[in-house]
Structures are given as C-alpha cells and as structure tokens.
C-alpha cells in the first residue's frame, strides 16, 4: 500500500457515522447537515448520501458566495442526490451599510458574519434535534477544542463525524471515490467562503490567510456562536 494510503481509513469513519445516524433516527430524532461546499466537506456529503440522502443539507447563502460555489452546489446535487436547502439572510444588503454607504463586511466583518451566516442558521437549530457538521479539529483552535458531540443551543445537538480527519484523509477519500473538487481550488484558493473575505493562497503564507487575512478572526461564528456555552473551551 502506498504510504499516503496508510493513514487513510474511511470505512471505520463511515461505519461509525452510519451507525450513529441510524441510532439517532431509531431514537426518533430529526437530523440535518450543513455544508459550505468547500472541497473538504465533500467526503462527509458523500458518506451522508450513502447513509441517508433524505437528510436535508442546509447551506448559508450569504449573498456573497462565489458564483463558482453555487455551481459546485449544483454539481454535488447532481452527483450525490442530496437535498440542499439554501438559507438567506433576513436583513437585505441595502440595510447593511454604514453612514458612508459602505457594506458591513468593510467595517464590521464579525457583525456581517452574524447577520448573514449565524442568524439564518439559528432558526434551523430550533427545528431539529441533531446537526451533522463536518468540522475538523485540525482547521482551527476553536475546532480543536470541540468534541464529537456537544450541544449547539436551541435544543439541538452538534454531531461532528469528521472531527478526527485531516487534509490528507480528505484528499485520499476524494481521490478514492473520484469526487469533484471546488473549481476555485485549481485556481489557487484554499479555504473558500464569502468572496469579500476570501483570497488566493500566497507563496510563503499558510492556509489561514485564505480567510479574513489581516484579522485575528478565524471563524465565521457558526462554530463558535452556535456552540452552547460551557461545553467547550475555545483557545483563541
């Protein structure tokens, strides 16, 4: 076996993921998943499609997504047969300007994320019992402090089946299952979120600079604000 594959163990994760989902369902719990359509979320979506393609997959369509991301959504929908549901912010962009007319992402990115990402998802948490979320511990300090299961607030439980995965495993899984990559990855993008706060990777800089370059901010809030207080320690 090539060395790269030595660290690749998809079946135990898939089995555990499937068993846990089925256990939740046997308990009568309602489930949903979320995605941002980044390349690293594709393995979880693929596994979910094999477990139960009827589980709704929400994505937050902030209004600032790359058109390439929305096209990638369509590719994944066709390929995986999942039911993607877009969530839009309730506050129009015309009401997200300051006195000079500038949009919120230019002067308060945290509040911009809150209005356009966190708030739209909050109402979904209130409707379901379990939120399947593909965060990985190696992505940020906040995620490193997470547990496989922990409360999300609004009576919903976060379930993180991919928490112990790493970038290499994602790469190998996608390769093994011939899964597509986000079209902007080939153009040099690393982490891909809203266009105004995303930039291409630069030589000599780590992947962290792909998002909110220049700010201490590393999370949009979905994985910090929608975590019930006192259940996780966030090292920031």
């Amino acid at each position: 076996m090539p060395r790269a594959l030595a660290t690749f163990a998809p079946m135990p994760t898939f089995d555990a993921f499937r068993d846990r989902v089925q256990a939740f369902q046997a308990e009568g719990k309602t489930l949903f998943a979320s995605t941002s359509f980044q390349g690293h979320s594709v393995p979880m979506l693929h596994m979910l499609s094999r477990i139960d393609a009827h589980i709704p997959v929400y994505y937050v369509d902030t209004g600032y997504l790359f058109p390439e991301t929305l096209r990638f959504r369509d590719v994944l929908k066709e390929r995986l047969g999942l039911r993607f549901i877009g969530l839009r912010p309730a506050v129009p962009k015309s009401q997200q300007r300051d006195a000079s007319g500038a949009l919120m992402y230019t002067w308060d990115p945290d509040r911009c994320c809150h209005l356009n990402k966190v708030q739209p998802l909050e109402r979904v948490l209130a409707e379901y019992d379990v939120w399947i979320n593909g965060v990985r511990a190696d992505q940020s300090a906040a995620r490193r402090a997470m547990q496989v299961e922990q409360p999300a607030g609004f009576g919903c439980l976060r379930y993180h089946p991919m928490l112990d995965w790493n970038a290499r495993m994602v790469f190998e899984y996608r390769k093994a299952h011939d899964l597509p990559e986000h079209p902007l990855e080939a153009e040099g993008y690393g982490s891909i979120g809203c266009e105004p706060c995303t930039r291409k990777l630069m030589d000599g800089y780590d992947e962290r600079t792909s998002r909110w370059f220049g700010l201490n901010k590393t999370e949009c809030g979905l994985n910090t604000e929608l975590v019930k207080e006192g259940t996780t320690q966030v090292d920031q």
Binding site: G63, Y64, P67, K93, G101, L103, P196
Partner: peptide
C-alpha cells in the same frame, strides 16, 4: 472601488437570486 463592487457585482448577484 467598493461602490462599483457593491452595485455592479453584489447588486447583480441579488438580481440573480
């Protein structure tokens, strides 16, 4: 720059939605 982006880019995105 920002106002061009705001109207011509993001405004068109809102139109599409």
């Amino acid at each position: 720059h920002h106002h061009f982006e705001q109207v011509n880019h993001w405004g068109t995105a809102e139109m599409v939605y």
